[in-house]
């Protein structure tokens, strides 16, 4: 679909593209600066100018990080938690969203209300309550509290996303499925999911980035160094002096890369399938 505005040829296109380019620069510049800063080795005096390529640029910070057993351990923990929480969370959210889309009005409204309430309760209200709960269950200091959010679909917003997308499938399609004898689970698996696979991919990606970046839950529920995840490990880097900022930035790049990669992959995946 093209815009119903007259274009003035190439010049017009360039002029109209300027805002997008400005936006790209504003939002991506910090990323570029972080990557450049991460190449500055430890112990070098902090630069007083913004160089495009800093003095003594090297990948030493990255090798430093990979050599630290604590860093590797934390990365592995983060991956492990994500490997369980993302599939389970996406599944839970997808099922709940489907139920909201398909249940009759009153039941659907109830579930919807539950989801909205879950999304609106302040995080601080849940800190202490969950701490007590996990303590009673004896699961503090294990990875279990980090995986637990999968049971609310990682975020109630994901449930809303799935509900909205499944509700947008025409009634006739669902009626057809019913006529053919498919129960709700089978309808979800063989009709709704394939029709809205893009949303599922986005949902899984969001579940991943929420799980990967979660620092509050490990901070409050995990005390043993062996179970630290990457974001928690990174908080200790905040105390580094300006001469070691390169290390902090390298850790930031490594912690962000999986998320950006996922976003990029999903974005291509979705773009190919819509319109």
């Amino acid at each position: 679909m093209s815009m119903p505005f007259t274009s003035e040829g190439a010049l017009g296109r360039i002029v109209r593209g300027v805002p997008s380019i400005v936006i790209l620069v504003i939002f991506l510049a910090p990323l570029a600066i972080v990557v450049i800063g991460s190449l500055s080795p430890r112990g070098t005096a902090p630069p007083l100018t913004v160089d495009l390529v800093p003095e003594g640029a090297s990948l030493s910070n990255y090798s430093d990080l990979f050599e630290r057993p604590s860093f590797r351990r934390q990365a592995l923990n983060s991956l492990g938690v994500a490997a369980v929480a993302v599939p389970v969370g996406t599944l839970v959210a997808s099922w709940a969203g489907f139920a909201i889309a398909r249940l009759p009005r009153r039941a659907s409204m109830f579930l919807l209300g539950l989801t909205v309430v879950a999304a609106a309760v302040p995080v601080t209200a849940l800190f202490v309550g969950r701490l007590v709960l996990f303590r009673i269950a004896g699961v503090t200091d294990t990875p279990l509290p980090l995986i637990a959010p999968a049971l609310i679909g990682v975020s109630p917003l994901l449930v809303l996303l799935f509900a909205w997308s499944y509700a947008s499938i025409p009634r006739e399609t669902y009626d057809l499925a019913r006529e053919v004898g498919l129960g709700p689970l089978a309808t979800w698996w063989r009709v709704a999911m394939p029709l809205r696979i893009g949303v599922a991919a986005v949902g899984a990606a969001v579940a991943f980035l929420l799980t990967w970046g979660n620092v509050l839950d490990p901070l409050l529920f995990v005390y043993d160094e062996r179970w630290y995840t990457l974001p928690l490990g990174m908080t200790s880097l905040a105390a580094l002096p300006p001469t070691d900022q390169g290390l902090v930035l390298a850790a930031a790049v490594l912690a962000t890369a999986p998320v950006l990669l996922t976003a990029f992959v999903v974005q291509r995946f979705v773009a190919d399938r819509t319109r």
Binding site: L131, F134, G138, T140, D141, L220, F221, Y223, D224
Partner: peptide, 11 residues
């Protein structure tokens, strides 16, 4: 903080 939370967390 870690001491407090771990005491509160029973570990």
């Amino acid at each position: 903080v870690r001491l407090s939370t771990s005491i509160a967390g029973g570990q």
